[in-house]
Design a protein around this nucleic acid. Structure first.
Length: 205
DNA sequence: CTCTCGATGCGCT
DNA sequence: GCGCATCGAGAGA
């Protein structure tokens, strides 16, 4: 495919909010036990540095240290006792930031995704940050992988997403950001499939 | 559809 | 010991 080149480090070396927007429509690829699982990124959130109270990089700790390192690396953390969340580290080395990948539109390996998320509709296989990690088999094993060189987790350039199809909102689930309204750093791609109902479009992808 | 709430482990102070 | 960048079940409307 002409546009399926891997995203290079320069893509991630920009300011975090720009990267979060630019990641919409790109393809996340997970090679898991030889199987290719992938999907188009349709929801992201930007988490900045020390000035962002909701960011793990608000403080530099052992866990958040990777956000201070070079861009293009995977930051996977464990949350609420049972879920993982996948981020891509942004900004130049020394400047902290990361983008949380919140939802995908499944492309490859949907049969395997169904076995990982039994009993849910296809449209719900990867429609949340914990869910997409479960479906793609992403755990702390993938923490620290270099997305620019890894053969098991990486990103490929894919769809071009026009601004008219993007909605920016405050971030979800963030309880410690008093200035949340001034940080509309969640980006949702609303692709409009032919014949989609208004109710479907109103729901989270 | 919406809202509430419990499960669950660990990073951090 | 507290609180969390979540999810799914269950209740109510």
């Amino acid at each position: 495919m002409l546009t399926s080149y891997r995203l290079e480090r320069a893509f991630f070396a920009l300011d975090t909010v720009s990267v979060a927007r630019a990641l919409l429509g790109q393809r996340l690829v997970r090679i898991d036990a030889g199987a290719r699982l992938s999907g188009l990124i349709c929801e992201t959130e930007a988490y900045a540095g020390p000035d962002d109270p909701a960011s793990h990089a608000h403080r530099r700790t052992h866990r958040s240290a990777i956000m201070y390192g070079p861009p293009g690396f995977a930051y996977v953390y464990f949350i609420y006792g049972m879920y993982f969340c996948l981020n891509a580290v942004t900004e130049v080395d020394g400047q902290p930031g990361a983008v949380l990948l919140r939802a995908l539109l499944p492309l490859d390996g949907i049969e395997i995704l169904r076995t990982r998320r039994p009993g849910v509709w296809d449209s719900r296989l990867t429609d949340g940050p914990g869910k997409l990690c479960t479906a793609l088999g992403i755990t702390r094993m993938q923490n620290g992988l270099d997305l620019c060189t890894s053969e098991e987790l990486f990103l490929q350039a894919s769809a071009s997403v026009p601004d008219e199809a993007v909605v920016a909102t405050p971030r979800i689930g963030v309880r410690c950001d008093a200035g949340a309204l001034s940080r509309p750093w969640r980006f949702v791609w609303h692709p409009a499939p032919p014949g989609a109902s208004p109710a479907l479009l109103a729901a989270r992808p």
